[in-house]
């Protein structure tokens, strides 16, 4: 059986409220907050970046698995905010986790779905018996230009999943992807902030890819929405996952444990994976979770995950929800300093 052996998460402690961002740009905070379904978002500290987030999440995953780090044979880090344009984040993670030197490693980039792409690689490698355990990590300190609507959502955080064949807490029963060349969101080389197609990011991008991947995996497995205890969809804001759940026949109750975006914003590559981690925090043996990520550009990875009996004895503290609640609020002035948006002389 191949599946999730362990998971770990990291969310920076700083938060900024949507109202505070709206105050600066002369917009109605309450209307924006309600419209996006985002109350606040996480903000990284000056000494945090995608690598530090990935390391903390990966260390938690390996420590909860109670395995020797040298048994990790692969490290894949998905992000759209790798600290270096050229030089892997995965090697920093491998060294900090202490996996040794004989391991497969690469950085992945596919907007918000690079983390789930890493999961698929690790699942395939575990099935092929190439690795004992593999770390698939999605982490980001995402960028939003000052005054752009993205500024309300682009946040920081990450999750690491240890994939393997032994001591599986949640079996990955199936996975599939739906991919097309759709330019809904991009960042050109050397540019500090991304651009997006506004309303174009909805129907032809997010909704088309998520529903296509979800329908395909339901068709392949012969499962229907009622066979799942929970579902997690990529969460660029609070509205999209709620709407796509309804379109696919999933209830609010099924998505609610994994809907973390209202409290921490869109953590990009960490987004659907943090939702999955929050859902795994509450899942019971034999319950199924449908996970569908979305990455602009564009593609969706879908997974059917079923919790095993081992989930009950697995250490799930501190829960994702507790990490979400541990926030320290900053104002917009401190936010622009923390995000290095102030140009120093």
């Amino acid at each position: 059986m191949v599946g999730i052996v362990s998971y770990g998460t990291y969310i920076p402690v700083y938060r900024i409220k949507a109202e505070e961002i709206a105050r600066i740009w002369g917009e109605d905070g309450e209307v924006i907050s309600r419209g996006l379904g985002i109350k606040q978002k996480s903000v990284p500290a000056l000494d945090e970046d995608t690598a530090t987030i990935a390391v903390e999440a990966a260390r938690e995953a390996v420590s909860r698995a109670k395995i020797d780090p040298s048994e990790v044979d692969a490290v894949y880090v998905g992000s759209e905010s790798h600290p270096y344009a050229v030089k892997p984040t995965a090697t920093v993670v491998g060294e900090a986790v202490g996996v040794g030197n004989y391991y497969f490693a690469a950085d992945l980039e596919f907007a918000c779905k690079a983390g789930t792409a890493g999961m698929q690689i690790c699942i395939a490698m575990a099935r092929a018996d190439m690795i004992r355990y593999g770390l698939a990590i999605g982490a980001d300190t995402s960028q939003g230009a000052p005054g752009d609507p993205l500024e309300y959502s682009a946040s920081a955080g990450g999750a690491a999943f240890l994939i393997g064949r032994k001591n599986v807490i949640a079996e990955v029963e199936a996975t599939t992807s739906f991919t097309s060349d759709t330019p809904d969101f991009w960042r050109r080389e050397g540019q500090p902030y991304p651009k997006h197609g506004g309303r174009f990011t909805g129907q032809p991008a997010y909704f088309r890819h998520i529903t296509s991947a979800a329908k395909k995996i339901l068709e392949e497995t012969g499962l229907k929405p009622s066979d799942f205890a929970y579902a997690v969809f990529h969460q660029p804001n609070g509205k999209f996952p709620t709407r796509v759940a309804k379109m696919l026949g999933f209830s609010k109750e099924q998505i609610s444990p994994g809907l973390v975006v209202p409290y921490i914003g869109n953590t990009y590559s960490g987004s659907s994976l943090l939702g999955l981690a929050a859902t795994l925090d509450v899942v019971k043996p034999d319950e199924r979770i449908l996970l569908v990520s979305f990455g602009s550009g564009a593609g969706s990875d879908a997974f059917v995950i079923r919790a095993t009996d081992s989930i009950e004895s697995f250490e799930r503290e501190p829960k994702v929800l507790e990490k979400i609640e541990r926030g320290i609020y900053v104002d917009y002035g401190m936010y622009v300093k923390l995000r290095r948006k102030i140009k120093m002389a």
């Binding site: 000494d47 945090e48 970046d49 690598a51 530090t52 390391v55 270096y84 900090a96």
Partner: peptide
Amino acid sequence: AAFRRCGEEGDAGIIYYCTK
């Protein structure tokens, strides 16, 4: 212990990571 950035060699140089 926590894993953090502890410095960098300007905008184009290497980033130093360490334990804080």
